[in-house]
Design a protein around this nucleic acid. Sequence first.
DNA 1: CCGCTTGGTTAGTGAGAACTTACCGTTCGT
DNA 2: ACGAACGGTAAGTTCTCACTAACCAAGCGG
Lengths: 100, 100
Amino acid sequence: MLDALGDPTRRAILETLRRSGPSSVAGLAERVPVSRPAISQHLKVLGLAGLVDHEPRGTRNIYRIERGGLAEVRDWLDQFWDDALDAFAEHVRSTEGSSE
Amino acid sequence: MLDALGDPTRRAILETLRRSGPSSVAGLAERVPVSRPAISQHLKVLGLAGLVDHEPRGTRNIYRIERGGLAEVRDWLDQFWDDALDAFAEHVRSTEGSSE
DNA sequence: CCGCTTGGTTAGTGAGAACTTACCGTTCGT
DNA sequence: ACGAACGGTAAGTTCTCACTAACCAAGCGG
């Protein structure tokens, strides 16, 4: 899921979809400097990660951003804010001394 | 930055820091199933990404989570919500037909 | 009905990155 | 001051993965 966002090309695809709206595979291949099969493979990964959704439109497949996957990333990120973060930090810094 | 989060081991390190608070390198090496040098290398990457911060404590280096990098990720993520996302989507779905 | 277009899949290759082993500098404890 | 431990670095190996090229299936247009 975060692995899917780790690749620059995949991020470029998402950025393109964000800026230009839903697009076909060929449409993405024009804007992203990789071959069309590469786009397909990345879209597959992004699809499994829940970051994009696709809808058949005749011979074309229109891809759009799926908010579900992004929500999961956001939740994961929020854990780091909700937890007693710096509190814990400053605490252990002065306490210190046990195991770690 | 998101590349730093793409690696499972690095995420494991961050999770460990989140749960157990700041820790030394050796302390992390005990909890994460990789060798100590590997931890050092990952911490270097995480440091460059602004995701962790370290403070010398004698011979030990205490690492803690840095909120700055996480904020950048959050900002990047928010772009996908603020933009006219599904509006754009449904629009083009019915309009369609031009170039992409 | 036939050709053209669109898109997904497979095989193969190359590059990059993660991991371990070995080494060295640094700092605390005795 | 010497030994021990903690941590960062270098070199080398291995493995994963991103990419291209070639092939195949499906749907629209003349």
